[in-house]
Design a protein around this nucleic acid. Structure first.
Lengths: 214, 214
DNA sequence: ACCAGATATATCGAGCCGATATATCTGGGG
DNA sequence: CCCCAGATATATCGGCTCGATATATCTGGT
C-alpha cells in the first residue's frame, strides 16, 4: 500500500473536483491556491497522477485539439498542442468524500491542515469543527512547549535567536486567535447538532487528541 | 559532489560552535532553536554527521565517561553511557564562517532564512543587512503575485479558500513589517563599524588561520 | 525486580526533490 | 522572415530525506 502522500492525492482530487485540468496547470494551482506544495516537482506529480489513473479515481483525456492546418489565431483561449487533461471520475468523487471525512491526527498538522481547510466547503460541519479544534490543540501544545523551554534558558540566547523565538511565538499566537474565531463562526452558523457528548458550552471543547501514541 | 543539504550542515556547525553535542541532543536543538527541521530524521542526521567528520569539520569524541562504580548522582548533566560527542574543529569554524558569508539567493528563502538569521550574532553586519533586504524582497515579490492573482478571480473562490488566502496574505504582510523593523534596527545600531558583541571572545569575525580557542 | 518510557545510535526501503531532457508555441529583435 | 529566449507541457533519473524499525542502556514508578 504505497501511501504516496495521501495529502497530494487529496489535493489533486479536490482541485479536479472543480474542473478538469492538465498537469502543468494543476501544479500551478497546487502552489497558489493551497498553502502547501510550494515547489512540487513534476517527478512527484506525474507518477502520482498515473497511479490515480490506475486506481480509477481520475481519467486521462488526451486533448486532441484537431485544430486544422490553419493557425487558428482567432481563438484567444489558445489550445497549444495535445495536452493530457485529467478528469475526476465517479469513484474519484467518492474517494474524495471519504478522505475528507477522515479526521485522523493527520488532518491538523502543519502541512496537512491548509489543504483540508481549503476543501471545507465540501466537508461536513461536524468534521470541520473537529479539525479546527484539533488544529487549535496542536498549536497550543506547541505554544506550551515553546514557553516552558524559553523559561528554562532565559539568558542563554543571543539577541537574534531571542527575536526569532519571539516572532515565531507571536505568529503561533495569532494563528490560535484565527482558528478560535473560525470555531466560533462555525458554532454560531451551524445549529447545535453536535454528535459529541458535550452539551455544556463550558466543556472546554474536548479536543479529539491523539489517543494513540505514534 | 553530494551537496547533502548545505543548510543542515550549516545548522550543525552553528550549534556545535557553542558547545560539543551528541546526536540526540543535536536533533532536539535543531527542532527547538532553529525554525526549520521540525522532525529531522536520524536517517538524515547521522549520515550527515559522518560526512562532516570525513571532511574534517567536526571531530568524533566517544565520551568514555570513566565514571567509576559510583552512581555520580551529583552531576546533573547525567552522562548515561558512552555517547558520541561531536566537536567543531578549526577547519569547521573556518567553513562555518565561509558559509555565513555566502549571500546567495539561498539565504533568504523560506526554509533557509531562519537558520541564517539564528546565527546573525556571528555574521558580519553587511551580510546581515543584505540577507534581511533579500528576505524582504522575496516576501514582497510573493505578496505581489498573491494580490494580482487574487484580483483576477475575484468571485471564483468559496468562503473558506478566501479566508485561507486572506490569512496567508496577512501573515506575509506581518513578516514584511517584522523584517523592516529589523533592517531599521540594523541601520541605526551599526553606523559604520562595530559588529555586535558575542558573549565570549571577540575573535569570532573571520579569523583566517586561527586554530585555537575553546 | 520488573516494566514502561526516555535516551541514544543505527539501518533500510519507499518515495520526494532538483536537475535535466525533449518538444511546441509565443513574442521580440535584427 | 528567421532565430533565439522564454513560457508551456510532459517525462525521467539519481541522490537524498523521511518514516518505520531495531537495538541497547538508563531512569522512574510500583
Amino acid at each position: 500500500m504505497s501511501r504516496r502522500s495521501a495529502l497530494l492525492e487529496l489535493a489533486i482530487l479536490g482541485l479536479l473536483h472543480e474542473s478538469p485540468l492538465h498537469g502543468y496547470e494543476l501544479r500551478k494551482r497546487l502552489n497558489a491556491t493551497l498553502g502547501a506544495f510550494r515547489a512540487l516537482s513534476f517527478g512527484t506529480l506525474y507518477p502520482c497522477l498515473r497511479e490515480l489513473v490506475t486506481r480509477g479515481w481520475i481519467a486521462e483525456n488526451t486533448e486532441t485539439t484537431s485544430l486544422p492546418e490553419s493557425r487558428t489565431a482567432a481563438t484567444g483561449s489558445g489550445s497549444r498542442r495535445a495536452r493530457i487533461v485529467y478528469e475526476l471520475t465517479a469513484d474519484g468523487k467518492d474517494q474524495f468524500q471519504l478522505m475528507l471525512s477522515q479526521t485522523g491526527p493527520a488532518a491538523w498538522e502543519d502541512d496537512t491542515f491548509n489543504v483540508h481547510f481549503a476543501f471545507f466547503a465540501r466537508t461536513e460541519a461536524d468534521v470541520r469543527l473537529r479539525i479546527l479544534e484539533g488544529r487549535r490543540s496542536r498549536l497550543e501544545e506547541r505554544l506550551d512547549s515553546f514557553r516552558s523551554s524559553a523559561a528554562q534558558r532565559r539568558e542563554r540566547l543571543d539577541h537574534y535567536t531571542t527575536e526569532l523565538q519571539r516572532h515565531g511565538l507571536e505568529s503561533a499566537e495569532r494563528e490560535v486567535r484565527w482558528v478560535t474565531e473560525l470555531i466560533e463562526t462555525e458554532r454560531s452558523t451551524t445549529p447545535a447538532t453536535a454528535p459529541t457528548p458535550a452539551p455544556t458550552t463550558a466543556a472546554a471543547v474536548t479536543p479529539p487528541d491523539n489517543h494513540q501514541a505514534t
